[in-house]
């Protein structure tokens, strides 16, 4: 009996080697999502990929692989065979792994298939907060040292980068940083009054702003956002921010360096077309994300610039574990 089973399996194995000479994709593709089910990376990837599947004429099986701020998923894809059948669906975090001492690898080992979109940071406060603008917040902090509670999400997260920017532009802020494990729980805490101010991504806060359960203080961008035209930008509050902005988290699809050109080309074309799909664009728009849909060298340049800005910002804020200079990350503008 056992010999029969094994015989059958070997036969299948041989049969299948003959098939794999076909064009890409000859079998299903694994899409490894760096973050948990229900998160924004998950939602974005699960809504763009069905369109890409149509173009590819193949199947992408998506898996959430969480842990260690996404490093588990990154390492999994980096260690898999670079044949185009294992794709990483991730966010910006890996570009800070080396600086923050969270890992040795980042996207420089990967080929960017598509950087889909980027988010816009916004500073929000509870509806009853005694300040309604960026300037009023700064004045309030100065008058009430050590009282205002800022939500944060650990070193390297969006809030830590934004507060690092604020400290670099405004000088040391005497506030309390209360740590949360994601912007969702932190924004919930903001509504419950456990924290007072929270730097978040626009999409996560926009519905609450519309409902009046959160108050927008400043958009961290160089231009006002068309979804919230009345909210002033941080640059309007302090010219110093123009050094760092625009800045924002992003989502992208990657394959490991060394993947055959055929696969890279097919995937790039598929995701470029998928990102143009109307319902996907509408989704990104309602969630307040700015579409990028870039790939190739353009994407590489974006990644390098992003890494340089952010890593040096963390270094100047004293949050970096490893000096970006030692890691070969150039200073912004160098």
């Amino acid at each position: 009996m056992r010999t029969i089973v094994f015989g059958a399996m070997t036969a299948l194995a041989f049969g299948a080697t003959a098939v794999s000479a076909q064009d890409y994709p000859s079998r299903e593709i694994q899409g490894i999502i760096q973050w948990g089910a229900g998160g924004s990376t998950d939602t974005v990837m699960r809504s763009v990929t069905p369109h890409a599947e149509e173009v590819l004429g193949g199947t992408v099986v998506m898996q959430n692989m969480t842990g260690a701020v996404g490093a588990i998923a990154l390492n999994y894809v980096a260690d898999a065979e670079a044949d185009g059948y294992t794709v990483l669906m991730g966010a910006e975090n890996p570009m800070l792994y080396r600086t923050m001492g969270l890992g040795e690898r980042d996207y420089s080992e990967f080929v960017p298939i598509n950087l889909l979109a980027r988010g816009t940071p916004i500073l929000v406060a509870g509806p009853d907060a005694p300040y309604s603008t960026y300037a009023e917040l700064m004045a309030y902090i100065a008058e009430h040292p050590g009282e205002v509670r800022f939500g944060s999400t650990g070193p390297g997260g969006l809030p830590s980068v934004i507060t690092a920017m604020m400290q670099s532009v405004e000088g040391e802020l005497d506030v309390i940083f209360v740590p949360y494990d994601g912007d969702g729980p932190a924004l919930t805490a903001l509504q419950g009054g456990a924290i007072d101010v929270m730097p978040a991504v626009l999409g996560a806060a926009i519905e609450n702003i519309r409902a009046g359960t959160m108050k927008p203080l400043a958009i961290f961008d160089t231009e006002r956002n068309e979804r919230l035209p009345d909210v002033a930008t941080a640059v309007e509050g302090n010219e110093g921010y123009s050094t760092y902005l625009p800045w924002g988290p992003f989502f992208g699809v990657f394959v490991h360096e060394g993947t055959p050109d055929e696969a890279v080309t097919a995937l790039t074309a598929a995701y470029a077309q998928a990102a143009e799909a109307e319902d996907f664009r509408a989704l990104m728009d309602t969630r307040g994300f700015t579409m990028m849909n870039i790939s190739g060298d353009e994407a590489r340049e974006f990644l390098a610039a992003w890494q340089s800005t952010t890593a040096w910002l963390m270094q100047e804020a004293g949050l970096a574990v490893n000096n970006p200079a030692d890691l070969g990350i150039p200073r912004p503008g160098e």
Binding site: G38, G39, D42, T43, R46, S47, I206, E207, N208, R210, A211, G212, T213, D279, A282, L283, T286, R287
Partner: peptide, 15 residues
């Protein structure tokens, strides 16, 4: 909540 977003609804206090 993600599913509602994908289907064009905006879950939140206004839903």
């Amino acid at each position: 909540i993600g599913a509602l977003f994908i289907h064009g609804l905006n879950p939140g206090p206004m839903l």
